[in-house]
Structures are given as C-alpha cells and as structure tokens.
Amino acid sequence: MLLTVKHTTRYAFAGEVRHGLQRLRLKPKTSHGQEVIEWRMDLVGARPEAAYDDQHFNRVDLVSIEPSAPEVVVTCEGVVRTADNNGVTGPHTGIMPLWCFLRPTPLTRPGPKVRQLLAGIEADRSDILAYLHTLSRVIGEQVEYVPGASDAHTTAEQALVAGKGVCQDHAHVFIAAGRMLDVPMRYVGGYLRMDDRDEQEAGHGWAEAHVQGLGWVGFDVSNAICPDERYIRVATGCDYAEAAPVTGIAIGAGETSLDVHLSVGENRVGMQQQQAASGGQQQVQGG
C-alpha cells in the first residue's frame, strides 16, 4: 500500500519566548515492512539546530524556537510504501540490549491491577504468542477506548483502575503486563490509515513484543489486530515518553495551546503508476 501523510502541529504561545528547544521524532525510517519514498519537514517560528539518531534508532530533529515567535508550526508531508507482514517487524537491531525492554518505567510500572489482570487470564503461557493475543483481547475488554479519558502522564495502572483510556493507555497496560512475563516490550508511535476517513485528530500508538523465533511483533490493542499495511512506524521507546513526537522547553512562553491536523490516505494514483511501470503486477498487497 502506498500511503500519503500530512501532519501539522501548531504551538501558540501566550507570552514571548526567550529561549526554546524542541525535540522532534516525526520522520519515519525505511525498515522491515515499510519504505519511505519521500518525506519533508517545514518549520515556521523555529529553525533546525541538529539531527541525530537516538538510543532507539529514532530519527530526531532538534530545533530552536525563534525569540518572540508567537507560534511554532511543524508540517510533515510524505509518501511511504507499506506491506502486511502479520505484525512482524523482525529481529532486534540497534544499540539497546533486549534486557532494557524488560525494565519498568514510570508509565508502565505494574501495580495491583496489572497483577490482577494477569492472574485472571487462564491460558497456557507456554505458547507465548497465543497468550499475548489473549492478553491483548482482555485489555481491550477491561479498558474502554474513550477519547480524552487520559493524558500523556497517565500510567498503565491508572488506566486499568479507571477502566478507560486511549491507544497509548492500551499499549502501556500491554507493555506492563508483558514485562511481568519476562517478554521484552516496547511502545511504537506512528500513523494508521483509517478505513472510513483520511482526516484524524492525532497519531496512533501500539506495542511490540519480542517473541523468540519471530523477533518484534506488533499488537494494536485498541483495534484488536496486529499492525498491517495501513500502519506507518515512526518512533519506538520503552514507553510513550521515549517515542513522543514532540518534547521540549519554551522559557517565557506562558500558557501554550496545541492544534494538530493530520491526514493519512492511500495514494492510489502512485500505486497505479507503479503497477503500469512494472507491467501491471501489483508489488504490495493492499487492504
């Protein structure tokens, strides 16, 4: 599938910014299951300072806010070719050892509710892949998807206690429980092509578990599926905080308002052109 993305993030400041830095994880990379055909980032009210790969091999752009800028606007546009690999992204790579993905983080530290969740699942843990699918289903049943029910600081335990949350919370509960089973877990932030619309309110988040013999396998608890060709992976981390698209500081900014516009669609024209160039043979299986 050939997907097109346009993602605009606008920060408006009530005060005059004296100094500000933002760390942007907004550029997807070519990896197992996806190929970045083109990608560009435009900045208003900020300028690039550095670009590097972080400890999770995410592409990071460090930008500084222009003094007294009333707002910062970051616009990303691109085209990504994706494939359906049944959620499998393959062997572990990078500088982070697998044991790092077993450590609890502030957002994924298990509490009584997470332990109770695991204790209530009567399934054979010897088939860990099947067990993780069961775990995903149970979390979806116990944590209702309710937009606005949580924020970026809500923990897995808090989401389970409340019984509601969003995709980030589903992923954190899954990660917290999986690590208690000694399964390396990580958070994934990216984009999802919705079946019924292009326009969306925000990006998407899901989890990946490292399963022996398969490598990293994705689980989208919110949609009760493994990621397919509709998904674009942008950043990973031990939890959302390490994969957040935008983090930073703005001294003197005062109250800050955020506005996000996101569109993820299928590039049917591009696919038709590729098929024609290859003699009409479809290279990527669509949805």
Rank of each mutant, 00 (worst) to 15 (best):
R47E: 15
D169M: 05
T236K: 06
Y240M: 03
G270R: 11
P112I: 08
T155P: 03
G254V: 05
G78N: 04
V143K: 01
G280N: 13
I225Y: 07
D228E: 07
D196E: 14
P97H: 06
N58Q: 09
G205M: 07
M180R: 13
A130N: 12
V264A: 01
T93A: 09
Q55I: 14
V80D: 00
S257C: 02
E71H: 13
Q275I: 08
G140V: 00
F219A: 11
D195L: 07
N223D: 13
L62W: 14
G120R: 01
A123T: 02
T236W: 00
K27P: 00
V146R: 08
A277V: 12
W216C: 09
A12E: 15
P147M: 05
Y11L: 15
L192C: 05
P91S: 10
E144V: 07
A209W: 06
R59M: 12
N223T: 10
L129N: 11
F57A: 15
G190S: 08
T30H: 05
L135N: 02
E229Y: 02
H133S: 08
R137S: 10
L26Y: 04
V44R: 15
L98F: 00
E77Y: 06
M185G: 06
V269Q: 15
V264E: 00
Q282A: 15
I139M: 04
P97M: 08
T89Y: 08
G163W: 00
V284Q: 14
Y11Q: 11
Q55S: 14
L129R: 14
T8C: 08
H170K: 03
G270V: 04
R179P: 02
E122S: 13
V72I: 12
T93V: 12
I175F: 07
T247L: 08
E266F: 01
R197L: 11
R125H: 08
M1D: 01
D84E: 03
I175T: 04
M271D: 10
V17T: 12
V5L: 05
G140A: 03
I95A: 12
R47W: 12
A224N: 15
P104F: 10
A130R: 14
Q272Y: 11
S263E: 06
T154A: 10
E201W: 00
E229R: 01
P110A: 08
Q281Y: 14
A224Q: 15
M194F: 14
V80A: 01
R47V: 15
D220L: 04
V166E: 07
G286H: 06
I121H: 02
N85G: 01
A224G: 05
T108I: 05
P106Y: 11
A250I: 04
T93S: 09
V17W: 09
V183T: 12
Q142I: 00
H32D: 07
T108H: 04
V260E: 07
Y131L: 09
Y231H: 10
L102D: 05
A162P: 01
H7T: 01
I225K: 09
V36N: 02
L118V: 03
A202T: 10
P147A: 06
G248T: 05
Q285T: 14
P184I: 11
K164M: 10
I139Y: 00
G218S: 13
A277C: 10
G165Y: 00
V74E: 03
R109T: 14
P110S: 09
G120Q: 03
